[in-house]
Design a binder for these strands. Structure first.
Lengths: 188, 188
DNA sequence: CATGTATTATACCGATCGGTATATTTTTGT
DNA sequence: ACAAAAATATACCGATCGGTATAATACATG
């Protein structure tokens, strides 16, 4: 693997484990077995490194989410597909997903949040558009797309956090259960 | 107001705005109009300052949550009361709640997360116990307390984040709607 | 082989990091 | 009033921060 990749991987692991602000550039290059000028040659700055890191992983996630979030009249199916994307990505790239989660809730004026906020907004609007489209077929949902989208993502992330802490498994059973719960509530 | 309080208030504002790791002790004392030895006299360390900060605000939140989370056979009522506590606290202490939110999703090995993790777990178990107790009256909920508790908190925090970004108001209407949604799903 | 470009290392920059030794002021208890 | 204790300031510590000037190396292309 080339040095650029090594730096990205080490930075991902360290940022996800201890946080962007707590990790120094020196520690990244030591772990990657290179020196600082190499890092600055490829990424220009610590912020540029974070941007490259997020771009690389988010692109794939976004593609999957776009494909899953195409509403064609079957909301339960669409929600299941979206949940699949989230669960699958958290399973396949747990370190990255941990980082994305922590950055998504980082303070708004922090450098790390500013780097990730655009991606969060895009993610949110993709899900929101599903509910906005579904309103046409479910009249009594009108005007609630934002809350639906945000709470749906919140429910999925709640499951993912539980899974990261070893309390549940992100399998099909949980997915069906939690999407059903979101659609029909907790009593059935 | 005494210097101890001034330091706590300035630290809260700065930590919530830009993050614990991104704020230096120097910036805190400058904002508070004191010097570093004063801060270290009262709090011993930067970490001690964060602990004192979280203790002070979480204690009140915990009291409210304990009172709200006493399940006595009426789950809809209990959930509404819990949601009221979250919404009220986010409204009354928005800066603190922003900080608590960001720390709750911070990387697990970060200093800030370690300081707050115990409070998060306690918060979670208070809500989990409600669902555990409700299982006796709602047989078909068995074995799902953890997911119910985590997703319920996730839904509430999703609303609070939406409110912080100006998309919704944390009023009684939203509270009723979102608790109803959690209980009965999105179609009714 | 020659030459330009991309890559990497050594050694350093000023600034800031969390924290403190020492001394002085302010407050408190008697 | 006076002594002890609490509170605060000045000035500093070594370490680390993000970043870079310079030079050497590797590499691709003619």
């Amino acid at each position: 693997m080339d040095n650029r990749q090594k730096i990205l991987e080490c930075a991902l692991a360290l940022f996800a484990e201890r946080g962007y602000d707590a990790i120094g550039v020196q520690e990244i290059v030591e772990n990657a077995g290179v020196t600082k000028p190499t890092l600055y040659h490829y990424f220009g700055s610590k912020r540029g490194l974070l941007e490259a890191l997020l771009d690389r992983y988010y692109e794939e996630f976004d593609h999957l989410l776009v494909a899953a979030a195409s509403y064609r009249g079957d909301l339960p199916l669409t929600l299941r597909r979206i949940a699949e994307v989230y669960f699958r990505y958290a399973l396949d790239h747990p370190t990255y997903y941990r980082l994305q989660l922590s950055l998504g809730f980082a303070p708004q004026q922090s450098e790390a949040f500013q780097v990730v906020s655009g991606k969060n907004e895009r993610q949110f609007s993709l899900v929101e558009n599903v509910f906005a489209a579904a309103v046409r077929d479910h009249g009594n949902m009108r005007g609630r797309q934002r809350v639906y989208a945000m709470t749906f993502i919140g429910v999925l992330n709640a499951c993912i956090v539980l899974a990261f802490n070893g309390y549940v498994h992100l399998d099909d059973r949980l997915l069906e259960r939690v999407v059903h719960q979101f659609e029909h509530g907790i009593y059935s």
